[in-house]
């Protein structure tokens, strides 16, 4: 590890931009203070972040609609509760009396439906490839048990199109280990074939430092590269069982990313034969999507084109207590960290 830290500290050369695309990577890099250990010639860019941060405002509005107008019990991962919609948030609805239950796992949400047969229970299904199998397992559980009062509101996203969309902003991806534990290494090799380098990384301090150092070393060789630095978890084939399961229940769809915009075919939704579990179909939710016009410049911040304080909303309309863009939603988001610590980290 010391060797890795030394490489990262002593690197001198052309500016190297490494983008992490995983909220937990961002979190750990922040928590471990890794930025401060890097040579000034290495820049870590916090990419699209986590599936919660990039959840679009109209999705939150849909969830609040189900809570308010359809009297559904909303079940959700904890981190989604504070994410603002266009007018409200799940936590505000909860304060106004909506039934909101935080669950650790989507299957717990299905269990809740089983225990409350006279209420409709909706799970807010957000997540990247790592989480989607769990969401599908909940649907499968409800299907197998004949639970009719359970459905999911999908905003599941997939990484490959986002990798393509952001590729020009980085010299090397720090690929999210737990996504690729499911999907395998194929998507990363596809990016390599297009000339984009990357390392697949784990989440502990030594794992992150080693992966970053491998990035630096390989970059100096001049050829595009891909190194799996997390082989104890990530196998080339990924998890065939998870891939098969998700493919059976879900199909690709377009998705809107908060602060970035539409990325075609960067999401998945339930196939129509499972639409009885699709909250959007089941409750015939009206289109909440307002014309997506916002001065929020999250996308430019994420791509390293501007600094947080150059966004017209920063610190004014957009603060950690009232975030507009994805980068302000989580504590470690680029804008949130800049707001709280003034660029010290």
């Amino acid at each position: 590890m010391n060797e890795a830290a030394k490489i990262l500290q002593e690197y001198k050369g052309p500016k190297l931009r490494i983008m992490e695309v995983c909220g937990t990577h961002t979190h750990e890099i922040f928590k471990l203070g890794i930025r401060g250990l890097l040579s000034p010639d290495i820049e870590l860019i916090s990419g699209p972040g986590c599936p919660v941060c990039v959840t679009a405002a109209d999705y939150i509005d849909e969830a609040c609609y189900l809570a308010r107008e359809k009297n559904c019990i909303i079940t959700t991962f904890g981190d989604l509760v504070k994410v603002p919609g266009q007018k409200t948030s799940v936590s505000k609805e909860r304060a106004d009396g909506a039934s909101v239950n935080i669950v650790y796992s989507p299957q717990d949400a299905a269990l809740m439906a089983e225990k409350n047969p006279d209420r409709e229970v909706v799970f807010l299904s957000v997540g990247f490839e790592t989480t989607t199998p769990s969401d599908v397992l909940a649907v499968k559980y409800a299907m197998d048990k004949g639970i009719k009062n359970f459905s999911i509101l999908t905003a599941n996203k997939t990484m490959p199109k986002a990798y393509e969309a952001m590729a020009s902003a980085t010299d090397c991806y720090l690929y999210p280990g737990h996504v690729h534990a499911i999907t395998g290494t194929k998507d990363c090799y596809d990016m390599l074939a297009k000339g984009t380098s990357g390392v697949i990384a784990g989440f502990t301090g030594p794992e992150l430092l080693t992966a970053l150092a491998v990035c630096v070393k390989k970059s100096q060789e001049g050829e595009p590269f891909l190194v799996n630095c997390y082989p104890r978890v990530v196998k080339d084939e990924g998890s065939p069982a998870a891939i098969k399961l998700v493919d059976e229940f879900m199909e690709p769809c377009d998705a809107l990313w908060r602060g970035i915009g539409d990325i075609p075919m960067s999401g998945v939704k339930l196939r129509s034969k499972y639409s009885e579990f699709d909250a959007r179909v089941k409750f015939d939710i009206p289109d909440m999507r307002e014309e997506y016009k916002t001065p929020c410049r999250c996308g430019d911040v994420l791509q390293g084109k501007i600094k947080s304080y150059e966004c017209p909303l920063f610190g004014k309309a957009c603060t950690p207590d009232h975030p507009v863009g994805a980068c302000m939603v989580s504590d470690e988001g680029a804008c949130s960290a800049y707001y709280m610590y003034g660029g010290l980290i």
């Binding site: 060797e3 890795a4 650790y104 790592t130 989480t131 491998v214 190194v227 104890r232 978890v233 990530v234």
Partner: peptide, 29 residues
């Protein structure tokens, strides 16, 4: 196993130390 959101998503070895050591040997020296 690696656990995420109530599911075991991958079989793993619990040894991140030897993994990073192996990587360091292969790529960093």
């Amino acid at each position: 196993v690696m656990v995420h959101a109530g599911a075991a998503i991958a079989r793993i070895t619990d040894d991140d130390v030897s993994e990073t050591e192996d990587l360091a040997k292969e790529f960093l020296s």
